[in-house]
Amino acid sequence: MDPRIPSKWEEITAADPTHSPRYIERFRRLAARGADIVGEARLVDAMLPRGSRVLDAGCGPGRVGGYLHTAGHTVVGVDVDPVLIAAATADHPGPTWLVGDLAELDLPGEFDIVVCAGNVLTFVAPPTRTAVLARFAGHLAPGGRAVIGFGAGRDYLFDDFLADAAASGLSPDLLLSTWDLRPFGPDSDFLVAVLSRANT
């Protein structure tokens, strides 16, 4: 068996152990000031009937999954960083929060939506990107969708992502340039992709 490839996030946190605590506190401060930190979650919520099963892939400290749980969904959040999972557990009780590598996802049941927000896909190890997307596809219920958002300039070209998604069995239903539904175009510097399994 090949050794596991560490993610870019793990490399960052290994080099700077204060990185994750600072990231957590940043979002806690934003929330305390009343900043809107759940725009991604509102979009996902609008796509789902109440009581849907949601996989928050790369959940970080739980802002997206926590909102979706409060909105009435069953949420499982997975992140490779145990410090972020501890914060999610403390700040957002209710969902199931798990430490895990997205390239090795193997969860029971199927999900109506897999949401991967916050540039998460650009922090996985580049050789595992297709494996991560294939795991997303494999966890979708019939008719389920994956919603993935990340910005340009992060060493993952949008065209390469779409090719990787196709190779992983995911087909785009809708491409947006923001989480507030602006259309995607050739000059967009952000991509929100809504994808479904190519065979459904």
Rank of each mutant, 00 (worst) to 15 (best):
S52N: 04
S52V: 05
S52F: 05
R53Q: 10
R53W: 13
V54L: 07
L55E: 02
L55I: 02
L55G: 00
A57E: 08
G58T: 11
G58L: 12
G58H: 06
C59Q: 04
C59P: 11
C59S: 15
G60H: 01
R63F: 06
R63W: 02
V64C: 06
V64R: 02
G65A: 02
G65W: 03
G66M: 06
Y67A: 10
L68E: 00
T70D: 15
G72D: 11
G72H: 08
H73K: 08
T74K: 09
T74I: 13
G77V: 08
D79Q: 05
D79A: 07
P82D: 11
P82L: 13
L84F: 08
L84E: 13
L84I: 08
I85N: 06
A86E: 15
A87Y: 08
A88H: 06
A88I: 10
T89Y: 04
A90I: 09
A90Y: 00
D91H: 11
D91S: 12
H92V: 03
H92Q: 08
H92T: 03
P93L: 12
P93S: 05
P93T: 11
P93H: 09
T96L: 15
T96I: 13
T96V: 14
W97A: 02
L98T: 13
G100E: 09
L102G: 09
L102S: 00
E104M: 10
D106P: 03
D106A: 15
D106R: 13
P108L: 07
D112A: 14
V115A: 10
N119I: 05
V120L: 01
L121M: 12
L121G: 03
F123T: 11
A125I: 00
A125M: 00
P127I: 05
R129P: 04
T130L: 10
T130H: 10
A131R: 14
V132H: 02
A134I: 01
R135C: 12
F136N: 00
A137S: 10
A137Q: 07
A137T: 01
H139F: 05
H139G: 04
H139Q: 11
H139D: 03
P142E: 08
G144E: 06
G144M: 10
G144Q: 01
R145S: 09
R145M: 13
I148K: 01
I148L: 13
G149E: 07
F150I: 04
G151A: 12
A152K: 12
A152V: 06
G153E: 09
D155V: 09
L157K: 12
F158Y: 13
F158E: 02
L162W: 02
L162S: 10
L162R: 13
A163P: 02
D164A: 15
A165S: 01
